[in-house]
Design a protein around this nucleic acid. Structure first.
Lengths: 194, 194
DNA sequence: TTATAAATATGACCGTGGTCAATATTTATA
DNA sequence: TATAAATATTGACCACGGTCATATTTATAA
């Protein structure tokens, strides 16, 4: 019973997303205004909200696709042999996520997929990232007493913690990568620490 | 060179906060409108923003004070003897933090103290919580190969992860406390796991 | 007491995300 | 090809957080 998705619809949607990319690349994520997007795309404001439930939905698509690009690269890597590799591999993604306070906030807000039925693009990338990490963990010299999925979720939790503290005035004297190293060593190789 | 804080100022501020409490207790946090607060407090809208930089600042005060009450209770507890105790102790606080999606979002947004000079009330509670947890960890039968502060920060990271996943449509089949148990056992007692 | 300066309060106004009934366009049907 | 139904677009309008020049109150000094 699904039919009739007019090509006009696709075109409008693509135009909106393209305009958004353009604005973001010149002014940054936080500076994007719906008003400006529709103006650049030459459609009415209401059209925007006919295509996206809200502004965040558009940001999710755009930020999610950025994250996916990073995950593509990560999937092409050979499994990290130690925690330093882990951190080096994850660095570009974490750098993007902290590139703007606004970006980090949007990611945080949607990492839990809200209470919606639909899983949003960003929540999907989180899910995907856990699977990538779990794969690495199964293949590498890491503790096996805990399920790889749990370890992977833990790494994600630590990464978020590090990024959050990076924005924090109290805690940002310890560089983000240094802190990540402390966490990962303790989390992944408990027997080697001390 | 600081002087002249009129008692009128304190009165107005107190009135605003009291009105906010009143509204929140009857309609919830997410339903609070600045308009309604000033109306209840019988002041002009501009007055609100003369007392608080923005709406979030008020929410921070209110939510922060709630969290502080929980921390007061935690400080009165005897140190937890195992991870189950940990989870039981933390449960009321985590319950509050997830009582509303809006509350959790505000907390997340300010846990990192933003980029401001001033450390906000919520960031302070996070700092305080880490110290409480670190104290427990030093006193109890937990791994000593990692600094207590790092362990404590880890617990905080896991708690946030559990709460975020609790809101998530993909991951909420595993109850929040169950998940926390998995994390904490692996994090605090790596030798006992498996 | 009155003049003056500093602190506080006011409310009209603005920016921006989001809504919705009306209109226009496309597709399906006769 | 005409007409009806479904789908997409429009833009005036609203909600709500936040601003700021002006007015009012309070503290200080003569």
């Amino acid at each position: 019973m699904k039919k009739a998705v007019q090509k006009r619809t696709l075109a409008t949607r693509a135009k909106l997303i393209e305009s958004a990319w353009k604005i973001i690349s010149s002014k940054g994520y936080g500076a994007l205004r719906v008003e400006e997007v529709v103006q650049d795309a030459a459609v009415a404001k209401g059209t925007f909200f006919a295509h996206f439930p809200d502004k965040d939905a558009l940001m999710e698509i755009i930020i999610g696709s950025k994250i996916d690009t990073h995950l593509d690269a990560l999937e092409r890597q050979t499994p990290p042999e130690n925690t330093d590799d882990f951190i080096r591999y994850l660095q570009p993604l974490m750098l993007f996520m902290t590139s703007e306070r606004y970006v980090f906030d949007v990611i945080l807000r949607h990492s839990g997929a809200a209470a919606k039925e639909e899983i949003g693009p960003i929540a999907q990338t989180f899910d995907r990232q856990v699977r990538v990490l779990a794969q690495w963990l199964s293949d590498g010299p890491y503790r096996k007493d805990v399920p790889a999925m749990i370890l992977a979720e833990g790494i994600q939790a630590f990464a978020i913690q590090c990024m959050a503290l990076h924005f924090c005035a109290i805690n940002n004297e310890l560089p983000i990568q240094k802190r990540m190293k402390l966490y990962l060593d303790a989390w992944l190789c408990p027997q080697n620490v001390s």
